[in-house]
Computed example of a mutant assay.
Amino acid sequence: MKPLVLSMLLTSLLVGCVNNQSPTGRGQTLLFSDTQMQQMGAQSFETMKKTEKISQNQAQTHYVNCVAKRITAVLPVQSQQWDVVLFESDQVNAFALPGGHIGVYSGLLNVAVNQDQLATVMGHEVAHVLAQHSNEQVSRAQLTGLGMQAADAAIGASGVANKDLYMAGLGLGAKVGIILPFGRSQESEADIVGLELMAKAGFNPNQSITLWQNMAKAGGAQGPELLSTHPSHSHRIEDLQAAQNQVMPLYTQARKQSLTECKMAHVK
């Protein structure tokens, strides 16, 4: 009976899924509600805060929070407070999770050397949340997991749910030993949406190109961890260069407002 039960469960999920459109008009299959994704994000972030060392550098923490505040202030929906944490690590990395959570590793500040470059990374990561990329990834993981369980049941094996799969789907695969990276189309969307966010927040979009050039130089031939599952930096830079004319008016308009400048903190 187990194959039949799993097949029925898989069918019910497919019937209940939401067909959505991404910011660029790409079709998305989403199995989870906003509430479910927020719960997953909150649980994963709490795990990160317990397992990773939180930075005690108040100057750097204030600086990171300043950039994050300006980025999140221009989001289309202002229904939540964003929890921003600076983790003490040499990793050149950052992430954002559904439910309003941003994690930045202090090593990123050695490569993103000014507020505009840090805003490039933060805008990109927040764009993943805005475009519901995590929901896409977790949905795929769920469907794949059910399919594998059904196959195991058919040959008499018992399927075991993998809790780490959900953290991987949220973009935290490197932390749990499972890599479930965002796809190239998702990364490209996050680049463009993130570029628009940083421009609307008054950060210079031209610096996005310099940031990814810095990324390409960091960490030797392989580059920093942030690039390990991302498209090639050359392709990314070309796309960002092509989008500059589109977003510069947003930046010009934003600079007419009174903005809090985020001063670069001293890096140890």
Score class of each variant (00 low, 15 high):
Leu146Arg: 10
Gly220Phe: 11
Leu4Cys: 09
Lys200Pro: 00
Thr47Met: 15
Leu108Val: 06
Ile71Phe: 03
Val15Leu: 07
Ile237Gln: 09
Gln213Gly: 12
Lys69Asn: 15
Arg140Cys: 06
Ile102Phe: 11
Gln36Leu: 13
Met167Gln: 15
Lys53Tyr: 04
Arg236Asn: 03
Trp212Asp: 05
Gln213Val: 12
Glu261Trp: 07
Ala221Ile: 06
Leu240Gln: 06
Val77Gly: 05
Glu187Gly: 05
Gln56Lys: 14
Gln56Leu: 11
Met48Lys: 04
Ala94Met: 01
Ile179Glu: 11
Val64Leu: 08
Gly103Ile: 08
Ile179Cys: 02
Met264Lys: 14
Gly219Cys: 02
Cys17His: 11
Lys163Ile: 12
Thr47Ala: 10
Ser22Ala: 15
Gly173Phe: 03
Gln21Tyr: 03
Ser55Asn: 07
Ile209Gln: 04
Ala216Phe: 01
Tyr63Ser: 12
Gln257Trp: 01
Lys50Pro: 05
Leu195Arg: 12
Gln257His: 14
Ser33His: 02
Lys50Tyr: 04
Gln132Met: 13
Ser134Cys: 10
Leu10Asp: 09
Gly41Met: 10
Val113His: 13
Gln117Ser: 10
Gly107Ile: 03
Val92Ala: 02
Ser12His: 05
Arg255Glu: 09
Gln207Leu: 10
Pro231Tyr: 03
Gln39Asp: 14
Thr210Tyr: 05
Ala216Tyr: 06
Lys268Arg: 11
Leu259Pro: 05
Val160Pro: 08
Gly202Ser: 08
Leu97His: 01
Val64Ser: 05
Asn206Val: 09
Thr11Asn: 09
